[in-house]
């Protein structure tokens, strides 16, 4: 059962943006040549700040957005341009949970109908069987079967998110993208939903893509984590490796920025403004170089760093010239010292 379930190759999404009344349009690359292998049964976290393209990438993976270029393979099959029956089969196996539990349910539809909708479109069972499946799913996500006849406004945010999860899972998909599923919820409710997702992922052996901006939440739920910056993946590693030894300077910056977990762990921070460059006018070379503490002029600002494993760590991928080179010398040093 192991192996790659979803593979994105050079996936790119461009948008045309008006610059102003007289300045014409510009092209923004929301996702820029992303290569990503997602393994069957894993939970992979996509993390980054606003504008990094994580939501766009997630939506392309479930084919709610058409890529401008690049390829998506699902279960060994190219699904980039599938239509008709093949697309429908893809939709049965690939689902999405949305961020905002208030806008992801049709306010005029009873939740039982919203949840039964996937079954209806895929011709599963008759009306009674569908009702029974909905009732079972409601119980599975921690609600009551009698809730099926109610309307969304009768539920709290956390309950609505349970309904959204139930709707995504009712067809027993193999692959689910959860797009910031807890960031709109109250803190005390977030944990319930995270626990529920983790349980269901185990129980149904799902492959889960967890899109979020909260690093602690991503660390909690993911097996592997991909860090995105301005449309590119800059680092991809096992959870424990990424968080204990971040390699890309942007990953380091992100982790440093997270507030202390205890008042005794406070540390001084830099108050100077250092902001995301405009995606309309991205920097040349490494996209991170204008904010980078270790950038080397004449190199980082000219050549785009590829996403490569550092020599010492084949399981990690980093897009940083300096770190890759340091990695080479480090292996050399370690080799020396072992003698």
């Amino acid at each position: 059962m192991s192996g790659v379930i979803m593979r994105a190759s050079a996936l790119t999404k461009e948008y045309q943006v008006r610059r102003g009344a007289l300045k014409g349009t510009a092209t923004v690359k929301a996702v820029n040549g992303v290569n990503l292998d997602i393994r069957r049964g894993e939970t992979i976290g996509l993390v980054g700040e606003s504008g990094c393209g994580k939501t766009t990438l997630g939506r392309m993976l479930v084919k709610l957005l058409e890529p401008t270029s690049g390829k998506i393979e699902f279960d060994g099959k190219d699904v980039t341009n599938v239509r008709g029956r093949e697309l429908k089969e893809f939709r049965r196996r690939v689902q999405i949970v949305f961020q905002d539990p208030f806008s992801s349910l049709d306010p005029r539809a009873r939740i039982g109908d919203s949840m039964a909708e996937p079954l209806l479109h895929h011709g599963v069972g008759d009306k009674d069987e569908r009702q029974e499946r909905v009732a079972k799913m409601l119980e599975m996500v921690g609600l009551h079967r009698s809730h099926a006849t109610r309307f969304p406004h009768e539920f709290s945010g956390g309950q609505r998110q349970r309904i959204g999860i139930g709707r995504a899972l009712i067809l027993r998909p193999d692959f689910v993208v959860a797009d910031e599923p807890v960031s709109a919820l109250d803190v005390s409710v977030q944990a319930q939903i995270l626990n529920l997702l983790a349980d269901l992922q185990q129980e149904l052996s799902l492959t889960l893509v967890f899109v979020a901006h909260n690093l602690a939440v991503v660390e909690h739920i993911s097996d592997r984590v991909a860090v995105m910056y301005l449309g590119r993946i800059v680092e991809l590693a096992e959870r424990s490796e990424l968080f204990s030894r971040p390699t890309h300077p942007y990953t380091e910056m992100l982790l440093d920025a997270v507030p202390a977990s205890h008042p005794r762990n406070r540390r001084p921070r830099a108050p100077e403004a250092s902001e995301l460059p405009s995606p309309l006018d991205p920097p040349a070379g490494c996209l991170f170089h204008p904010r980078c503490p270790i950038f080397e002029a004449g190199f980082c600002d000219e050549v785009v760093p590829p996403l490569h494993p550092p020599p010492s760590e084949p399981s990690r991928l980093v897009a940083c010239h300096v770190r890759i080179r340091e990695g080479q010398t480090r292996t050399f040093d370690e080799g020396e010292s072992q003698k």
Binding site: I96, F98, S104, L105, R167, A168
Partner: peptide, 10 residues
């Protein structure tokens, strides 16, 4: 998002 959800549901 609820319209997108319907799309994703096929």
């Amino acid at each position: 998002e609820y319209v997108l959800a319907s799309v994703a549901n096929g």
